[in-house]
Design a protein around this nucleic acid. Structure first.
Lengths: 113, 113
DNA sequence: TCTATATATGCAAATATTATTATATTTGCA
DNA sequence: TGCAAATATAATAATATTTGCATATATAGA
């Protein structure tokens, strides 16, 4: 199983709007750096930095094609994560049954000290 | 639907080892601050700070029980996200079919310029 | 009313993240 | 061999996050 540390790294890798866009794009297929430049409104070095972070975290990888670097998805959690963050949740989780909202409530299990 | 921006914020809220642990614990049920102190190796003010961040992002909420604050999960994406990051993926995504690894490869689609 | 308990808040220091700019590296091709 | 394209790296600056510490607030109970 993924360690806590690794789980957090994947979340961190995705916790940036530009990187989510990069990953969504990679979901469609292999892309090289200049492809990203076309639709991300950021500088080339910045694209490279985000890509290299994603690679450091093991989320993506690339292969060389002449002077292009062709990036592709590597971590299998990515497609699932993208599906999840796009999912439409209708409502909040149900408040715990006990929840009194007033200040008189009782903690749902025995307190421990 | 929640905006991508909001979703990224939730990911950011979760992208910290302490907060992942807090959320995993909340998945089991309502907990008050001192419950967290028992297994997180951080100070009480720090626990409170993480909790208040999670609340600011709409991920959790609490109700009062005397002088206890009983925290619970609110954003329905959380259980799904936690399940996902704990999931055990056997292998990496298949490398793109074209991938030559050598430096002779051709970009899988027509290059655009 | 006084005290102890549970928790939050404010602020500063340490650290991390992001974007920017300048420069370097690699490779294809003339 | 030399130049331009594609991309990376490094240094910096701006900003955000995280933590520790001191202190504040609220409430239950004596």
């Amino acid at each position: 199983m993924r360690s806590i540390r690794h789980r957090v790294e994947v979340l961190k890798a995705m916790a940036h709007p530009v990187r989510v866009q990069i990953l969504e794009e990679l979901l469609k297929g292999v892309k090289c750096v200049s492809d990203f430049e076309e639709f991300l409104e950021i500088s080339q070095p910045n694209v490279s930095q985000h890509l290299s972070l994603l690679r450091r975290f093991g989320v993506i990888d690339y292969y060389m094609d002449g002077r292009l670097r062709c990036y592709f998805l590597k971590d299998p959690i990515v497609p699932d994560l993208i599906t999840l963050i796009k999912k439409d949740y209708i409502k909040e989780l149900p408040a715990p049954a006990c929840c009194p909202v007033t200040k008189k409530g009782k903690y749902p299990r025995e307190r421990r000290r």
